[in-house]
Design a protein around this nucleic acid. Structure first.
Length: 434
RNA sequence: UCCCCUGUAGCUCAGUCGGUAGAGCGAGUGGCUGUUAACCACUGGGUCGGCGGUUCAAGUCCGUCCGGGGGAGCCA
């Protein structure tokens, strides 16, 4: 008989007001009050309080309800009732409870826990309200990322994860044996994107990226997701325009679709509402001047560290675009400025409030001879880049693009402190488990 | 790789001057008809990270190894 009732989800419980329903889920929390038991039931779509009155149910049902342990799998049958006191506005008046599986000694209690403990129990931590909110935002942002580019005529063409050589030479790569050769896990899809862009015009890839750098900060994962658009017949300004539209769109999507989640996380919505065009665009030289004018000690020509980035971004309430960088601090494929040979047409987008670099990109070198010289300068294995040089042999055009780090985006949108919570199973320098 | 902090009950922590360990929460039992991290009472729960050293005596002091957290550099 139980199965004859409509099976409902907490997320659309309002539709079922006054009706008798079945809800399948897990016990998030339980509070007893004599002849009354409150079951907080989590079904993956949300959490609702189910109320069990002793006089309204069979004695064995009340005994069961009273003795349920945290995270036990249960099926609840009852009537959906509107209630002012409920956080989501509705409750279920329970008629029957079925125990599917009894959990014993669930390690994550409603009290405080340290990060190390929670990370060791990441597979269970995912069930907590805050983690659910963050990961729902992640899912929405992934969807929005794809929609944005799909709607603008970009073709999603994913690039390989197993690659024969370093894309950017400088960064450390993960190695893996490959039938007698060595393969490397991709640190960027960009070089391959340039090939598909020359074939399809506007493309993007979206997938995991690997960096074997020993970075131990709240902004680094060894495995993270990156979305990288690339456009043929485009320059630095086109890329900055695109990045700007993109971030404005993403913030709007978060505000439109993640209200509940952002509220769970106590996110200051005005911070997201402030992400509007135009973003300030300053050159590297202007950024250095800004640092100097604030009394910061900074040597022209080096890259900005986290404190420098924060000092710059704190001057603006919107993401700030820093463009035209010294060639020495950027990758070999960056296009040189026609007027200044030591400057490259790259751009970094720094998010406000210390969330740091969220986008990096720019225009690519499209001249065969110049690129060839750069490959030599950087002591890169020429053979591995022959195919890349081919793109400059056959119909080379100005082209540009960028990469956005998904986890950094979600950290920023959700307003949380550490990006390890924005991916279901984070891979960090010192953590491979679970 | 470097710098700082830390390791005591299932969890979060306290533990003074070196004298064999405590609290809150969780768990168990009982009570309570509106709780929101409920509350009240009782009960059980410890290789004080490992190894070595100093000492009559080490959670406490010293050495070393291991684990955890935070930060830097580099990057998205």
């Amino acid at each position: 008989m139980l199965m004859m009732l409509p099976e409902v989800q907490v997320s659309d419980i309002a539709r079922w007001e006054g009706q008798e329903v079945t809800l399948k889920g897990w016990l998030y929390h339980l509070r007893k009050k004599g002849r009354l038991v409150f079951l907080l039931v989590r079904d993956g779509s949300g959490t609702i309080q189910a109320v069990v009155f002793k006089k309204e149910v069979a004695p064995e049902v009340f005994d069961l309800a009273q003795s349920l342990s945290q995270e036990s799998a249960i099926i609840v049958r009852g009537i959906v009732r509107r209630d002012e006191r409920a956080p989501i506005g509705y409750e279920i008046s329970v008629q029957t409870v079925v125990l599917v599986h009894a959990a014993t000694d669930y390690p994550i209690t409603p009290k405080e826990h340290g990060t190390g403990f929670l990370m060791d129990h990441r597979h269970l931590w995912l069930r907590s309200a805050k983690q659910q909110a963050v990961l729902r935002i992640r899912s929405r942002m992934m969807r929005a990322c794809q929609a944005f580019f799909d709607d603008r005529g970009f073709l999603r063409l994913d690039t390989p994860i197993l690659t024969p050589a370093a894309c950017e030479g400088t960064t450390t790569l993960f190695e893996t044996p490959y039938f007698g050769e060595t393969a490397y896990l991709s640190q960027s899809g960009q070089l391959y994107n340039e090939a598909t862009a020359m074939a399809f015009g506007k493309v993007y890839c979206f997938g995991p990226t690997f960096r074997a750098e020993k970075s131990k900060t709240r902004r680094h994962l060894t495995e993270f997701w990156m979305i990288e658009p690339e456009m043929a017949y485009a320059d630095l300004d086109d890329t900055m325009d695109l990045a700007e539209d993109f971030l404005v769109y993403l913030a709007a999507q978060a505000l439109e679709h993640c209200q509940q989640e952002l509220r769970t996380l106590d996110r200051d919505l005005s911070k997201l509402e402030a992400i509007q065009k135009p973003f300030p665009r300053i050159t590297y030289a202007e950024a250095v001047e800004l640092l100097h004018s604030q009394g910061h000690d900074f040597e022209f020509g080096s890259d900005f560290g986290a404190p420098d980035e924060n000092a710059i971004s704190s001057q603006f309430h919107r993401p700030v675009m820093i463009h035209r960088w010294p060639a020495d601090c950027k990758a070999f494929y960056m296009k040189r400025a026609p007027d200044e040979p030591n400057i490259v047409l790259g751009v970094d987008v720094i998010a406000p409030d210390g969330y740091g670099e969220i986008i990096g990109g720019g225009q690519r070198e499209d001249d065969y001879g110049t690129l060839e010289a750069r490959i030599e300068e950087h002591k890169l294995p020429r053979e591995s880049f022959e195919w890349y040089l081919d793109l400059r042999r056959y119909g080379s055009v100005p082209h540009a693009g960028f990469g956005l780090g998904l986890e950094r985006l979600v950290t920023w949108m959700a307003g949380i402190h550490h990006l390890r919570e924005t991916i279901p199973f984070p891979r960090l320098m010192d953590r491979l488990q679970p």
